[in-house]
Design a protein around this nucleic acid. Sequence first.
DNA 1: CCCACTGTTTTAGG
DNA 2: GCCTAAAACAGTGG
Length: 270
Amino acid sequence: MPELPEVDSVKTSLNELISGKTIESVTVRYAPMIEGTPAAFQNALRGKTIESFSRRGKYLLWHLGNKTLVSHLRMEGKYYLKDAGAPMDAHEHVAFVFEDGKALHYHDVRKFGTFALRDHAEVYTTPPLDKLGPEPLSDAFTPETLRTWLKGERAIKTVLLDQRTVAGIGNIYADEILFCAGIHPKTKARRIQDADKLARCIKDILQKAVHDGGASIRSYKNTLGVSGRFQLHLSVHTKEGEPCCFCRSAIVKTKVGGRGTYYCPRCQKH
DNA sequence: CCCACTGTTTTAGG
DNA sequence: GCCTAAAACAGTGG
């Protein structure tokens, strides 16, 4: 459940349920997910108290005083609140056990997720967060900052998926944003005229999705049993063959930058 | 069974 | 610099 609105929902749930807990121990069953050695990871986390969780782009940050744990859920990462001592399910690869008898299990069928521990002082100036573009829902993101990327021959969808342009847009929201803006996903970046409108659609779509708690498509429930509702408001993504809500044309599925891409052939022009 | 596809990111090669 | 394909991995659907 990786894009900005979904990670934001995870962050909110974890702040309500996990903040303030102290880590007693960490179990690592699949080491490649962890940057560095599991032993160093476990030793550094033991005894740390979780101040809060935050989000940067699609990354979830655990604030642990002088250390920050940077977690990326990639395609299918999820967190589940369990009791300490609960067995780890087949697809749970890391378990954080707390002193109060609870535990947080990281579940990831495809094992693509990553964990990296950083000194808090360096978390934003070292990989993976150092090259991220502005937060789309903050004042740091403006039509002017967007305009600096509206150059060259790249497809506009590719530009939106580039995390340096703006942080947090993934495949679902790129499609929805371009529908909102009336822009064909294959339009060359340098041909985009109305940066104001595109920037506004980025903010509008993401804001509404955050408000809805993200989208749950092809996955049952979000982390900690919280379900998103934004999938009910999708206009084009996963809607191949269905009539456009605006003009009734059949939604088309194509491929842009190797990613499945949905658009309305009538409402979205080059 | 085989192939394509899946909410990501990074890397290699042309 | 840009594009594609592939890689990490597992499950699903045609």
